[in-house]
């Protein structure tokens, strides 16, 4: 019943090549749990049988489905802490001081999946935004994901993925077997179906765009086209957050890079003359360990 070593080797190799995500030894259960629904849907006897049939057929749609099952569900709140710490400590204070207090901040969570990133940003704005009006556009290709984002209800296992307990009790309430995000946060998030690979619908000018772990799914020309379209809707003083394994380098060279701690942010080139320009506020001093979110959330 357990996953065969051959099946695991094939899947981990596939995911490493397609999504730059390493599934080390001991992750067999993860592969098993995530691929079981696909194996079922395909009528395979078990996950190993499903994987070996995929290995034989090489069906690209199924391969992508496997990669997605092992990557896109990795939606977790602050687990991937660095981008959010950079947003809270550097980007947000900079935006608050450089824009008129009456102006609404516009932030885009692109390919939002079930909404964890959008609500994580909303929590940071609620706690550190000095009362500034803000809207987070959460977009996805899947209307099912948009509905989930709009609902803002998460299972116990989903809520367990890297949401600091002090923030959970501050922004969520229990509703049956689920945890419901507060109305305050829900009111900050707007959902819209957007296909990143085609021309965008009319959009506001964004101060920040989160486009994390999305480009990995596209080929080089599409990556370039997406980055160019994003630049058109991003304020010249705006910021682009990409995933840890992603870069604009060698794809679209009209972006400047700003390094804060170990994290790299991207800004439209004109706003950042020079190779590694200074940012307006002090950079992070700690680069080794992530912050104690508990302390941050309580303002201790």
């Amino acid at each position: 019943m357990t996953l065969s070593p051959q099946a695991f080797a094939y899947v981990s190799d596939l995911v490493r090549r397609e999504a730059a995500i390493v599934l080390g030894p001991g992750k067999e259960y993860l592969v098993e749990a995530r691929l079981l629904p696909l194996a079922r849907a395909a009528g395979a006897a078990d996950v190993s049988a499903y994987v070996s049939s995929l290995q034989r057929s090489g069906n690209p749609t199924q391969r992508m489905a496997v990669v997605e099952a092992l990557t896109t569900n990795e939606t977790s709140w602050f687990r991937d802490g660095e981008p959010f710490e950079v947003f809270r400590s550097t980007v947000l204070p900079e935006l608050l001081s450089s824009t008129p207090p009456t102006r609404r901040l516009n932030i885009w969570s692109a390919a939002c999946s079930s909404g964890q990133e959008a609500y994580t940003i909303a929590m940071l704005l609620a706690d550190h935004g000095q009362g500034r009006k803000a809207e987070i556009l959460a977009s996805d290709l899947s209307t099912e994901m948009l509905d989930r984002t709009k609902a803002g209800a998460y299972s116990q296992l989903e809520i367990g993925r890297g949401l600091p307990a002090p923030m959970m009790v501050k922004h969520f309430r229990r509703a049956g077997t689920q945890w419901q995000v507060s109305d305050q946060l829900r009111a900050m998030v707007r959902t819209q179906r957007i296909n990143l690979a085609t021309p965008f619908p009319p959009l506001p000018v964004f101060d920040v765009v989160f486009l994390r772990n999305v480009l990995i799914y596209f080929d080089a020309p599409t990556k370039k086209a997406i980055l160019q379209r994003v630049r058109q809707v991003l304020s010249p003083q705006g910021y682009l957050f990409l995933g840890g394994a992603e870069t604009t380098l060698g794809i679209d060279d009209s972006w400047g890079r700003t390094t804060i701690g170990r994290f790299t942010l991207y800004r439209p080139q004109a706003a950042t003359p020079g190779a590694n320009p200074p940012v307006a506020t002090a950079p992070l001093t700690t680069t080794v360990l992530p912050p104690r979110w508990a302390a941050a959330a309580e303002g201790r």
């Binding site: 019943m1 259960y29 079981l36 299972s155 116990q156 077997t177």
Partner: peptide
């Protein structure tokens, strides 16, 4: 369904190796 969800979560977390 609530009882089912609760039990499912326990199995998914600790006993998924043998299937759902």
């Amino acid at each position: 369904e609530d009882i089912r969800v609760v039990t499912d979560d326990v199995w998914t977390s600790f006993l998924a190796t043998y299937g759902p």
